[in-house]
Write a protein that binds this DNA or RNA. Sequence first.
DNA 1: CGCCAGGCGGGGG
DNA 2: CCCCCGCCTGGC
Length: 270
Amino acid sequence: MFIENTQHFDLKQTFECGQCFRWNEQQDGEYIGVVGNYVMGAKNVNGGIEIICADDFFAAQYFDMDGDYAKRKNKLQCDEIIVKAITNGHGIRLLKQQPWETLVSFIISTNNNIPRIKKIIELLCENFGDKLIHSNKIYYSFPTAETLAELNVTDLAVIRCGYRDKFIIDAAKKVASGEINLQKISNMSLEQGRSELKKVTGVGDKVAECVLLFAYQKYDAFPKDVWVKRVFDRLYSVDEEDIDSFVRDKFGDLCGLAQQYLFYYGRQLL
DNA sequence: CGCCAGGCGGGGG
DNA sequence: CCCCCGCCTGGC
């Protein structure tokens, strides 16, 4: 699949804006990632972007190629700060990620740093995922809830995730048993989805919002991590407890997308 | 060595 | 109800 217009698509910005953990830049500049049971490639060629995937329809969906970013950006341009943030991260696209993988990934992300988050997720996949072969190399899919539900915290010692091990097992058991139905969250309101996800021990507001935004395209979800809090403190002079109502008023039902531009901007600026 | 990193749960006030 | 503390681990 070839994307000619890169006005709203930049690989580095999309993969490194904090929403995903399994895309890695290779020596030659190509990004390789595992999505579902596909090993996908993405690279800049001839002024456009080439996506390599065995299923182009799947890839187009994952990258939200039908999403109208010109329109979305227009709706957000209401002050000079967000305008700068959008200019800075003009090529960010919110990926349509898989709920189970997103849930576990952001459980792992708590009180943790990005290199270590990525390392733990790869160990989880290598130890408990399925082998996938792609151009003579071995990759691993993200393990299913059913697979992880059979494990105990001792089995998870190999991934070195610290105290998060019990949270991962808890999530797996609740999803595999049907106590939590990830499918149903698609049709739930933001509030319902949030409380459903928070049934998992180790899932609080931050993790729940990330899953709702990155896996369910609920663009009114608004994760508040330390960088977002920093942006609202230093650039908007808004106190932490006032952020939710402030962004609701300002950015409406696209506040989650605004969050992504501001997060990426803040990480570089502050 | 101490501190922190894209939070969270539990306990005490 | 709110605040605050400890937490696995690895990197600096």
